[in-house]
């Protein structure tokens, strides 16, 4: 049971994460609330190629807590005048039980108008193995200037080997300044709210 909770919380936390590496010297604080778990995640970017973080997750039903350490490594980035493309390797390991861990390959491509991202993740812990794939597409209904409130209309679709059924649901993303809020809803997983602040 503990392992399932841990696996679910890892999935929830990292699915909603956007831009897992900040500017050099930058800190990012995130809070996520879903049907199963709440979590707080902080990461620091010492170098433009990677970020280090700590995650603390609490299961809403059992009340159990799962702290973990995380590393995100930028494999490749391509900047053009109108777009940015990133490829990341993400890993995490349980602080109280090192057999709990995950690794993922994630990528995104973004212009001021369009967004496309994907993630493929393997989660392991206490004998359980889980593989999840997800894609996310988004469009900005208007192009805001620097400092404006920015809005993204997105759709996310994911599938894992435990459920073996694809779920697709709408996501709304808003950000202004260093603050971001993302809200997704699916009848199966209920509301998923993600807050992020970069400083």
């Amino acid at each position: 049971m503990k392992a399932i909770i841990f696996i679910c919380s890892l999935l929830l936390a990292s699915n909603s994460m956007s831009r897992p590496i900040s500017y050099v010297g930058g800190h990012t604080l995130m809070a996520n609330s879903g049907a199963q778990t709440d979590n707080i995640y902080w990461h620091y970017t010492p170098n433009i190629n990677y970020s280090l973080g700590l995650d603390y997750q609490r299961d809403k039903i059992s009340g159990e807590a799962f702290p973990s350490a995380r590393l995100t490594y930028l494999i490749n980035r391509k900047n053009t005048a109108t777009s940015q493309r990133n490829l990341y390797l993400k890993t995490g390991i349980g602080l109280d039980n090192s057999t709990n861990h995950f690794y993922a390959l994630a990528g995104d491509w973004e212009t001021r108008r369009l967004f496309a991202g994907f993630s493929a993740k393997q989660v392991s812990g206490m004998g359980y193995e889980l593989f999840e794939q997800s894609v996310k597409l988004g469009i900005a209904p208007y192009l805001g200037a620097y400092g404006d409130l920015h809005t993204w209309l997105m759709i996310e679709s994911k599938k894992d080997n435990l459920d073996d059924r694809r779920i697709t649901y709408p996501v709304l993303r808003f950000f202004k300044g260093g603050a971001l809020i993302e809200v997704g809803y699916h009848k199966k997983t209920d509301w998923d709210v993600h807050l992020m602040y970069r400083f």
């Binding site: 831009r19 900040s22 500017y23 050099v24 010297g25 930058g26 980035r77 900047n79 053009t80 005048a81 109108t82 777009s83 940015q84 973004e110 212009t111 001021r112 805001g144 620097y146 400092g147 404006d148 920015h150 950000f175 202004k176 300044g177 260093g178 971001l180 970069r198 400083f199």
Partner: peptide, 16 residues
């Protein structure tokens, strides 16, 4: 600048 497509991601410029 190339790759500056997102307000949230350009925040660091002001900070830096």
């Amino acid at each position: 600048v190339q790759g500056m497509v997102c307000d949230f991601c350009a925040r660091g410029i002001e900070k830096t």
